[in-house]
C-alpha cells in the first residue's frame, strides 16, 4: 500500500502544487479543486488501480485524504480477491 500512497500523492501534486500534502489532510477542505476534479480523481483511481468506482463507493469519507483513498483501495481489492 506504500506504493499506492505514493502514486496517489503524485497524482494529487498537480492540483496542490508545492504544498506537501499530509496523509490524513482533508483535500476538499483545502479548496484547490475545480468542478472537473471529482471525475478526474475517479478516472485516475480506476485506471491506476484497475478497479471500478461504483455508486456505493461515493462517500466523501472515501476520498477526503490520501489515507482514506488507500483504505478504499484496500477494501475494494480485498473484496475482489475474496470473490
Amino acid at each position: 500500500m506504500k506504493a499506492a500512497k505514493s502514486r496517489i500523492k503524485n497524482f494529487l501534486a498537480q492540483y496542490f502544487g508545492d504544498r506537501e500534502l499530509q496523509d490524513d489532510e482533508n483535500i476538499f477542505a483545502l479548496g484547490f479543486v475545480n468542478s472537473m476534479f471529482a471525475m478526474q480523481l475517479v478516472l485516475f483511481i480506476e485506471k491506476e488501480f484497475e478497479i471500478t468506482i461504483e455508486n456505493e463507493d461515493l462517500d466523501l469519507e472515501n476520498f477526503k485524504s490520501i489515507n482514506a483513498m488507500v483504505n478504499l483501495l484496500d477494501r475494494k481489492t480485498t473484496v475482489v480477491a475474496g470473490n
Partner: peptide, 17 residues
Amino acid sequence: VCRQGFGFSHVASSALD
C-alpha cells in the same frame, strides 16, 4: 440517481464531459 450530494460533482460532470 447516484447519491445525495453527488449530482453535480459526479453525475452532471460525467454527463457534461
